[in-house]
């Protein structure tokens, strides 16, 4: 399920087409391109709302927003990898899990 640019601007009240275009140009928002038109997935819509909050409600300037965005993207990247590692460890037999756990404690505390 995706929505068009017009619907997005209508749905997010503080958003203007100009703002949206400049975010797309900067690569902050990356909608799917199909048949020459932009299609926004739910995740893109949520990201646009976040950008609106940063620029509009927090009144951050254009230099600060990419800094925060980049840190957030790194945190989410890390969290996802950490989650995958945790699940992968969880799938191991108990003996392997225990060995990983004690190695972890040794390294983290050492």
């Amino acid at each position: 399920m995706t929505i068009s640019e017009e619907d997005l601007v209508r749905e997010v009240s503080v958003l203007t087409v100009q703002r949206l275009h400049s975010w797309i140009r900067l690569g902050w928002v990356r909608p799917e391109r199909r048949e020459g038109a932009a299609h926004f997935h739910d995740v893109d819509v949520a990201r646009v709302r976040l950008l609106c909050d940063l620029e509009h409600e927090l009144e951050l300037d254009e230099d600060t927003v990419p800094l925060i965005l980049s840190l957030l993207d790194q945190i989410h990247g890390l969290r996802n990898e950490l989650r995958s590692v945790a699940v992968a460890i969880d799938e191991q037999p108990p003996a392997v899990r225990d060995r990983i756990a004690s190695a972890y404690r040794r390294i983290a505390e050492g």
Partner: peptide, 10 residues
């Protein structure tokens, strides 16, 4: 949101 996430951090 994987297409937004970056591996640069690690």
């Amino acid at each position: 949101a994987r297409h937004y996430q970056s591996n640069a951090g690690f």
